[in-house]
């Protein structure tokens, strides 16, 4: 467990460092997803970093593709490619494009970046497993803002119709998007959509709700639902905080995509060191 907590902190530090060094990239979304990524890649998923194309591997789709840097740091820490390569993030001719590009980097199961599309390819992967009698599972990380795309619900319907019990969608429910709606929230904006669980339930999915920063709860929930005997596709509503781990970024939409100043960088890193 401590290991998973350390990995999550490592992911957050890698994100902040890379964005600071490259002066590019999204911050808030990767930080809210760090604990989820840690649990998936260091515990739940059956994968072989040394053989990224292994046909039996569990699949992962970062439907909220703008959080790519979070996934890259995770893959580097897990041994898919040298950690030093993170320094090329978003640079010309890099394998680490701003949004995941499966034609460039081994270990990426799908290209994403236009919101709403990743979940559909996840449905396709889960259908392929069934048609080929394979045991692998497909995990999709979806944004709550992203869930405004109609395509998400088109995918949800088909997954239920074909009883894709091997499909797990994790909603990173951080109540913020890029700009969103005016609100009385302290930072003035939000994503007014608190009822994710009820929606997925209404679409016939097996739904769990969990604190997306509670590593042991995340682990337990994912273990539990993936062993559920029913054929229903699984939705995990992970209640998260955008910018989690860095006090001045938490819950502030301005850190959706922003580069820390020198001072902010020092401050953020010192907070993350404490974990």
């Amino acid at each position: 467990m401590d290991q998973l907590i350390m990995h999550a902190a490592g992911i957050r530090k890698g994100v902040i460092e890379t964005v600071y060094q490259q002066k590019q990239g999204h911050v808030g979304g990767p930080l809210s997803a760090a604990d989820i990524l840690s649990v998936l890649y260091f515990d739940i998923m059956t994968i072989k970093p040394e053989d990224p194309d292994w046909p039996e591997r569990d699949r992962f789709v970062l439907s909220k593709g703008h959080s790519a840097i979070g996934l890259y740091v995770t893959l580097a820490l897990r041994g898919y490619f040298p950690y030093a390569e993170l320094a090329t993030f978003d640079a010309l001719h890099s394998r680490l494009q701003a949004h995941p590009d499966m034609t460039k980097l081994p270990g990426l199961d799908m290209s994403t970046g236009s919101l709403g599309q990743g979940i559909s390819s996840g449905v396709g992967m889960a259908l392929a497993a069934k048609r080929q009698n394979k045991a692998y599972k497909t995990y999709v990380l979806l944004g709550d803002g992203e869930s405004q795309e109609g395509q998400v619900w088109e995918a949800a319907r088909v997954a239920e119709r074909y009883q894709l019990g091997n499909l797990v969608v994790i909603v990173d429910a951080n109540n913020l998007q890029q700009y969103g709606w005016q609100s009385d929230d302290k930072n003035g904006r939000d994503t007014p959509d608190s009822n994710h669980g009820a929606k997925w339930k209404a679409f016939g999915w097996n739904v769990s709700e969990v604190d997306g920063h509670d590593i042991s709860a995340l682990k337990e929930t994912l273990q539990h639902i993936t062993s559920a005997p029913d054929g229903k596709p699984k939705a995990v509503i992970a209640h998260t905080v955008k910018g989690k781990g860095v006090s001045f970024m938490e819950g502030n939409f301005k850190w959706h995509s922003n580069v820390p100043t020198d001072e902010e960088f020092e401050h953020a890193m010192s907070e993350l060191e404490e974990v």
């Binding site: 803002g145 109609g150 700009y179 969103g180 709606w181």
Partner: peptide
């Protein structure tokens, strides 16, 4: 707006004339 007002500067409209601004969320087709 399709949730990009702070990038595209559609946010200026919301700030100066809020009743002339509609946030449609991340849902371009709709």
């Amino acid at each position: 707006d399709g949730d990009l007002g702070n990038s595209t500067r559609l946010a200026f409209v919301e700030k100066e004339n809020p009743s002339a601004f509609l946030q449609m969320g991340i849902a371009e087709q709709n």
